[in-house]
Structures are given as structure tokens and as C-alpha cells.
């Protein structure tokens, strides 16, 4: 049968977690003593773009403006507007990734330079900022400047303005059809299988991976024959510490949850400012799926095994990164 390796939901991390709790004791923010110095070096920063002269920038900006107001640009079948994403949306998100959350990216080489891949990440943070930061991280750190196509919840495509921006930024509905179509076109697709269970979990459950749905993402990757790249995001859990959930209000508003944080909704819009935590995004070793026969996608045992393998990899990497982390904010 499947030679998928299932890492048992280990004792070691649980022990570490216990130690962390104990170490936190009265104060809270401090972690257990860091067992080892950080050995990994941060990846070399991408080469700084050649500074452009003001003239060039004006000319470029006007050419961009000319194309935009005459409608002379292309979008793909999913409504992805590459030019708008590169020139405007990414520039708006980049300061958040670089200055605010100071995202440190590790293992970017695990994302292939060409061809499709499915990036599977943990989901957290009440608002899906982790997805957006992941998109910026992949584009800005990858040598081939690859674009990550995120799969988003259907709520995103119901909301006005949000759906328009999401489509233009290259996101699409998280369903097997769309994912497979993108993967077969050789795109890097990002998925967060925890969904609302992950993003809307209480602060006390931070960095505990929730159930990974039915593992549909594995069969999609298998059908498309693309590798699965596990991805662990540390730091997003603490941007909005969700201490409560106004369930009735959420139901009235038609939302999956209504977060209550120490600042929101008490401080109004000011409470919606995320905490400036320090983020780390680690891409793990790709899990190849092209060795399986085509009918393997219909084998539920294999699907569960592979799903567990991906889940455990992400969970263990999360614990490893948490142990290495000096503090939430630095």
C-alpha cells in the first residue's frame, strides 16, 4: 500500500509545549529557554531593484495610466490582473510584509522555479492577512518571482469590493475544479485547508493545527501530478488575539465568527489595527505526488495518510519555529 510516512503526533512537541507553558508562568510573553542557537541563516535578500530615475518612473507611471484608462490590459479566465497586482496591490501590501510584520522567509527554494506546485499552509489571525503576506513573500523572495494563486473561502466572493480585489489579485474559490485548472496550467497554488476553523480559533489554541478538511487538496495535487509544499507561518496567530467570539452577532451578520480581541470592538477602527508581530514563513521539503498511479486519487487511505503527513510536517515545523522564536514581537 501507500508508502506515505505518518509522523506520530509526537511526544516531543507536547513536552516542549508543556515546558513552554511552565516557562511562561506568570508573565506570559516569554518562552521557554531557547535550547539551541539559530543555525539557519536568513536567505539572502533579493537583489535591490536598480534605482530608476524620476523620468523613467514618470514615463512608466504614465504608460501604466494610459493602459489602465483605455482598458488595454489582459486578465485571465479567473479575473487575475497581473499588471494591477504587480504595480499596485503588491506595492500596497509590501510595506506590511517588510516593515510591519518583518516577514522572514525560509526555504523558498522548495518552491519550484517552473511548473505547478501546491503550497499548503496553516491559517490563523482572524483576518486572512497570512494569505496576503504569503503571496507577497513568494513573489518577492522567489528567484523567478512566481505569483501565488490563493484559494479563498466563498465568503470572500460574496462580499462586495473584497471579491473584486481578490479576483484581480489572482485568488479564486477554494474548490477542486479551480485548483486543478490552475495547477494544470503550471501555477503555484496556495491553500489553507484549515479554513475558518483555523483562522477563527481562539487565542488559547494558537499554533494547534485544526482538522484539514477531507484532504481534498491532496487528491487535487495528485490528479495534477504536482508536488505539495508544506508551509508554516509563525506570527500571524498573535496579530489579533481572539479572546472571544460573539456567535449571535456573527450569525446575524452571516459571518462564520465575530472576533472579540482585547482591543476590538472596544476601540472601534483603532482596535482593528493588527499587532506588529514578527513573522516567519518556512517552506518545507516538497512532497512528490507524481509517483502515484492516476487512480490513487480515489484511494481514501492514501489521501488520509498524505494529508496527515502534510499536517504533521507543518505542525512540527511550527513547533520548531516557535522554539527558535525569541519573542512574539522581535
Amino acid at each position: 500500500m501507500a508508502d506515505a510516512k505518518v509522523i506520530p503526533f509526537g511526544e516531543e512537541p507536547r513536552a516542549r509545549r508543556k515546558a513552554r507553558r511552565a516557562g511562561r508562568g506568570g508573565r506570559g510573553a516569554a518562552l521557554a529557554p531557547v535550547p539551541e542557537a539559530r543555525t539557519e541563516h536568513p536567505p539572502a535578500a533579493p537583489p535591490p531593484p536598480r534605482p530608476r530615475s524620476l523620468d523613467e518612473r514618470i514615463a512608466g507611471g504614465l504608460a501604466f495610466l494610459r493602459r489602465r484608462i483605455t482598458g488595454d490590459y489582459e486578465v485571465d479566465d479567473f479575473g487575475y490582473d497581473e499588471e494591477l497586482t504587480d504595480q499596485v496591490l503588491m506595492s500596497l501590501l509590501r510595506p506590511f510584509a517588510e516593515k510591519y510584520f518583518r516577514v522572514e522567509v525560509k526555504g523558498i527554494e522548495n518552491i519550484p522555479a517552473d511548473g505547478g506546485a501546491l503550497v499548503v499552509a496553516n491559517h490563523s489571525g482572524t483576518l486572512p492577512l497570512d494569505g496576503l503576506m504569503l503571496q507577497v513573500a513568494v513573489h518577492d523572495n522567489h528567484p523567478a518571482q512566481r505569483h501565488l494563486r490563493l484559494l479563498a473561502a466563498d465568503l470572500v466572493f460574496v462580499l462586495p469590493v473584497i471579491n473584486e480585489l481578490a479576483r484581480k489579485a489572482g485568488h479564486t474559490l477554494a474548490c477542486a475544479e479551480d485548483a486543478q485548472r490552475l495547477l494544470e496550467r503550471g501555477e503555484i497554488v496556495g491553500v489553507m485547508p484549515e479554513g475558518f476553523k483555523g483562522i477563527g480559533k481562539p487565542f488559547a489554541d494558537r499554533y494547534k493545527l485544526q482538522r484539514f478538511g477531507r484532504g481534498g487538496f491532496v487528491s487535487t495535487a495528485l490528479k495534477a501530478g504536482v508536488p505539495i509544499v508544506p508551509c508554516s507561518i509563525v506570527g500571524a496567530e498573535e496579530i489579533y488575539p481572539m479572546i472571544g467570539n460573539a456567535k449571535t452577532l456573527a450569525r446575524v451578520l452571516g459571518l462564520p465568527y465575530f472576533p472579540i480581541t482585547p482591543t476590538f470592538p472596544w476601540l472601534g477602527p483603532l482596535g482593528a489595527v493588527p499587532l506588529p508581530t514578527k513573522w516567519t514563513i518556512q517552506f518545507g521539503e516538497p512532497i512528490a505526488t507524481d509517483g502515484y498511479p492516476p487512480e490513487a486519487a480515489d484511494d481514501p487511505m492514501l489521501m488520509f495518510n498524505l494529508t496527515d503527513q502534510v499536517r504533521e510536517t507543518i505542525q512540527h515545523t511550527l513547533y520548531k519555529l516557535l522554539v527558535q522564536r525569541r519573542s512574539v514581537f522581535f
Binding site: 524620476l54 523620468d55 514615463a59 504614465l62 495610466l65 494610459r66 484608462i69 483605455t70
Partner: peptide, 20 residues
């Protein structure tokens, strides 16, 4: 008309480069 808008932008570009 898109042609008129494009002309306006081109003229603006001409003015800006001439000034600079």
C-alpha cells in the same frame, strides 16, 4: 473615447518631459 484619453495622457507626458 479611449483614444482621447490616451492622447491626453500622451500630451501630459510630453509636457512633463519637456519641463524636466
Amino acid at each position: 473615447p479611449p483614444e482621447a484619453l490616451a492622447r491626453t495622457v500622451d500630451r501630459l507626458a510630453g509636457v512633463l518631459t519637456a519641463r524636466r
